[in-house]
């Protein structure tokens, strides 16, 4: 990106407006669709899905349970019934397949809010603020489980903005909007990408699920990279890009392996050179549109 230019301008110029926002649009559509499915019942009387993200029943047959909330009840000493366990296994397997933090990018109701906070923060040119280490979320995750064990209560659910906001939308809001506003203001004024990127234990939990996940983003055409830095600017977890995008010389895989990647696909959108693509974890193929690529198969052999 040129100085003074917003990220993504080159991609819009090269690919057109739709292609430069394809995954973002798709992602917002999926977020809306998930919420819509849950709202069909209370608003239209069409009960395809009942419950909320903590646990739901689809078409009166398919149980889905948030594995994180189930782990919390387990550490309080409660042995859950089969329906919840089965539901949690199904959800866990799904996210092992599509990338744990795909939950954050594609389902979580807080994501559009923190994305908006980040967008506004950039637009207002706000700098500085608190900085947490990216690993802080794992501390928070551990803390929620310790508190659950000590109090015998699913304690995190008293404060969890994710479940509170979704439950609020489906069952009635109460003061849950205040929690959402707090997260928004925190991300806007206090800490850049603070909540989702550094603190949220739900994201930490799903990230751990995604440590072995199959679907990943691959910098397959990293040879074509023109160092415009747009992907770093839009990525909610920019630290995950470097090893894959710039690791060719160390023989690193072009696949983004970090569990912190949310599979949001925004890097695919904003790259005018189409460096990124979704790929399976073991798929280390590389190619190039411009022919600038070194022959990766030769290099791998060497």
């Amino acid at each position: 990106m040129k100085p003074g230019q917003r990220p993504g301008q080159e991609a819009i110029a090269a690919k057109g407006r739709f292609a430069a926002f394809k995954w973002l649009i798709l992602r917002r559509a999926v977020q809306a669709a998930v919420l819509g499915l849950f709202l069909l019942g209370p608003l239209a009387g069409l009960w395809l899905v009942k419950g909320n993200l903590a646990s739901s029943l689809t078409l009166d047959i398919l149980p889905l349970t948030d594995p994180y909330v189930l782990v919390q009840t387990l550490v309080t000493g409660h042995l859950p019934e089969t329906a919840a366990v089965l539901g949690a296994v199904i959800v866990a397997l799904f996210y092992v397949l599509v990338g744990g933090r795909a939950y954050c990018a594609w389902v979580c109701p807080v994501n559009p809010v923190t994305d908006a906070a980040h967008w506004l923060r950039d637009r207002l040119g706000l700098k500085g603020g608190m900085q947490f280490r990216r690993g802080t979320r794992y501390w928070v995750l551990a803390m929620t489980l310790v508190v659950a064990a000590l109090t015998g209560t699913v304690a995190w659910e008293l404060a969890n903005p994710v479940s509170m906001v979704f439950r609020g939308l489906v069952f009635g809001m109460g003061f849950a909007w205040a929690v959402l506003a707090a997260v928004f203001l925190f991300d806007l004024f206090v800490s850049r990408r603070g909540w989702c990127g550094h603190l949220c234990p739900v994201g930490a939990f799903y990230g751990l699920l995604g440590a072995v996940s199959l679907l990943r983003v691959s910098a397959r055409r990293r040879a074509d990279c023109n160092d415009c830095m747009d992907c770093y600017a839009v990525c909610p977890e920019p630290q995950v890009i470097n090893p894959a995008l710039k690791g060719a010389d160390q023989g690193a895989s072009p696949v983004i392996l970090s569990a912190q990647c949310t599979n949001c696909g925004r890097c695919i959108d904003v790259c005018s050179k189409d460096v990124f693509t979704f790929a399976a974890r073991p798929d280390r193929r590389e190619d190039s549109k411009t022919g600038a690529a070194r022959d990766s198969s030769l290099r791998d052999a060497a």
């Binding site: 309080t76 000493g77 209560t153 439950r167 609020g168 009635g172 109460g174």
Partner: peptide
Amino acid sequence: GACIRCGLCVRDCPYPTLRLSNLGEDVAVG
């Protein structure tokens, strides 16, 4: 410690009896 605040009991209650506690009420939220 056992309730995960999913609201499925509320959904299957055929009467307006059950409800989920909202944030700000005295009952543990959800």
